[in-house]
Nucleic acid binder design. Structure first.
Lengths: 360, 360
DNA sequence: TAGGTTTCCGAAACTGGTTTCGTAAAGGCG
DNA sequence: CGCCTTTACGAAACCAGTTTCGGAAACCTA
């Protein structure tokens, strides 16, 4: 660390000086305390004065410096996001959209996003603690909520506002947290309903490792869909622990080699569903006729295969935007228990599903 | 906007009060000005006093509040990153690693990362301007540098420190900017050298649209590699404008249907190289024997195919970390012209390349 | 019209730091 | 040993805001 001589060179502050609240006050013939209260909506300012101040502020391009405000208020208008580096799929191709959604929404309200990362729980706690201690963020967005999420417990204990992407406990009454979630089970039910309406009677399901919360939710939706459609649940047609494209292909081979193979396969993720395309090519099966497929996620590649994969298009951008909006509302005083949103993932029909070829 | 009554409720500040510089000063029997100067390395503090202060600060867990410092210094120890939402590939699977690299390095130095996004140039300028005006960041990291990048020009004009991922002008003397880059051309040369050493004489190249800067760089590397190996450059073997897996497959078909087909194909991106696997399966070709392939990027999926794709593993995490380090160094006063780094992408050998099958 | 309220603004304290400036004490020199 | 520098710290101003408090003027009411 280099020594600092008595007179520290200050860098050239040649950029035109920004307008401060005192400049604004002087221009208006008021004191800065009045201007501050006018701008912050205090009730002891005359409406006419408030309007004058607002107008002049806009005219002079005045914008308060959040850091200076933070010294007094403790709020910096910054949202925090902690990425988990040990996430096996690196958040796939969705991270950019997700971040875009958060930042665009935050930007509209004059907030910003501070991101950090951690590769273990202890590191996460250290990171969060530092961000809070340094007053760099006002609240957190938690992606990838798990059942009984340690982050939620940690932040709750510290009375730090946060919103979760995904609910921690399903069915049970909420713990008063704020969340945004996509109806995974509902999408799977809708897929089964769709396939059953087309005439499919044996529909298989291929899902990710059961350690993922969403894997269980989607599997439950599959089973519920079968029940709704009046179809029996055959355990042979349900394969879990499938994460990669190649594993998805392997699952398809096993299913098609059954004595009574399914006519349709519902994949819990697009990435694994693409493996079925490889198998279809191997075996000369026409997807959408000989074998129907439906995926989930809406990854870009799903549109590019032939025929395009029918899937549920998760809108990461929208998720990010809503999460930001929910957190900002909470930071402005809304009760977190009121800030919950459950949305449906819309179906994006490709050509990968159709009526089963009638056996003759 | 709701009215604020005269006495604003302040939220429950029940969390134990943080130690302030004045607490520290009192505990030491010094004034806060002395403590501040001791902590910031001023030369007019006795070494013994400095040590005493440092020790007590550690003991009491004192950490200055960056926002309060910022009011006076104008520096907030925050790096800015502007994502471009219109990037066609959404930064692929690399964004999480890249962000992880930046934030981990920044965190070590006590800095944080503020990200924002834009979907057009004017939006980018507005976003950057707001971040600067609000003093939310001290400098920027620019991903995806293009030739003659408008962002660099914009920030230069405002005298805002920044580092670029990728050089703007190659060959020409630098404009005094700071950058980090991966030697694209060098990797392609190395690939050709490797294939030539294995005995390949006709090596094709499949590259992305020429509007991408890196596409041209990699193509140049291919050509240089051929020249170094003493091989002729056959324009028929060079296919550009290929971005997706399916297009990569199509390119492979065209090349293999030539009267004198190549024995090896160098793909500028892994995603497109995977298309050649589909073609090999179609035609019963054994990859690594009948057809050699080398890719570039090191995407996760490249390890999972059979045989694994030989590729150049770009280390996004490292790139992020180094960019953060370069920017922080610049913000601490180092001349940006001295802060440049060119790294090689290391080869990650799979089994997709080998000696050509001898024609008989 | 006197007396009590309200309304509305200014003055000043405050936030948590940094930096300038002044000066007492210690050290160097002849 | 006296004078001139250094050394090392304290006092106070400062940064850009917010918030508390007090009081003059305007508004009611009787």
């Amino acid at each position: 660390m280099e020594e600092i001589r008595r007179t520290k060179s200050h860098g050239d502050k040649s950029r035109t000086r920004r307008v401060r609240i005192s400049d604004l006050a002087q221009a208006l013939g008021l004191t800065k305390s009045t201007v501050s209260r006018a701008l912050n909506g205090y009730s002891d300012i005359a409406p006419t004065t408030r309007a004058r101040v607002a107008k002049m502020a806009a005219q002079m391009g005045y914008a308060p410096m959040p850091y200076a405000q933070a010294v007094r208020t403790g709020r910096v208008r910054a949202l925090g996001l902690v990425l988990e580096l040990d996430a096996p799929d690196r958040y796939g191709p969705f991270l950019a959209d997700f971040l875009g959604g958060i930042t665009q929404e935050a930007s509209l309200e004059g907030w910003t996003l501070t991101v950090s990362s951690s590769s273990s729980r202890s590191e996460m706690e250290a990171t969060v603690t530092r961000l809070l201690q340094e007053h760099k963020v006002d609240g957190f967005i938690l992606p990838r909520t798990q059942v009984d999420d340690p982050r939620a417990a940690f932040l709750s204990a510290k009375h730090v506002p946060f919103v979760m992407f995904g609910r921690t406990d399903h069915g049970r009454p909420d713990a008063g947290h704020s969340w945004y979630d996509i109806d995974n089970a509902g999408a799977m039910r809708a897929a089964i309903t769709r396939l059953a309406a087309m005439g499919h009677r044996r529909i298989a399901f291929v899902g990710p490792p059961a350690s993922f919360n969403f894997a269980l939710l989607r599997r439950d939706g599959y089973r519920e869909g079968l029940a709704q459609a009046g179809l029996a649940h055959d355990p042979v047609l349900e394969i879990m622990e499938v994460a990669e494209r190649e594993e998805g292909a392997e699952a398809a081979r096993r299913l098609l080699d059954l004595p009574d193979p399914p006519s349709a396969i519902l994949y819990a993720t697009d990435a694994t569903a693409l493996g079925a395309y490889d198998v279809a090519r191997e075996r000369g099966l026409e997807i959408g006729r000989d074998l129907s497929l439906i995926g989930y996620d809406g990854i870009p590649e799903a549109r590019l295969v032939t025929p395009p994969l029918t899937t549920f298009a998760v809108d990461s951008h929208h998720a990010g935007a809503r999460l930001a909006a929910l957190l900002i509302a909470q930071l402005r005083g809304t009760d977190p228990a009121e800030l919950t949103e459950l949305v449906e993932a819309p179906l994006r029909a490709g050509g990968s599903d159709g009526p089963p070829r009638t056996r003759e």
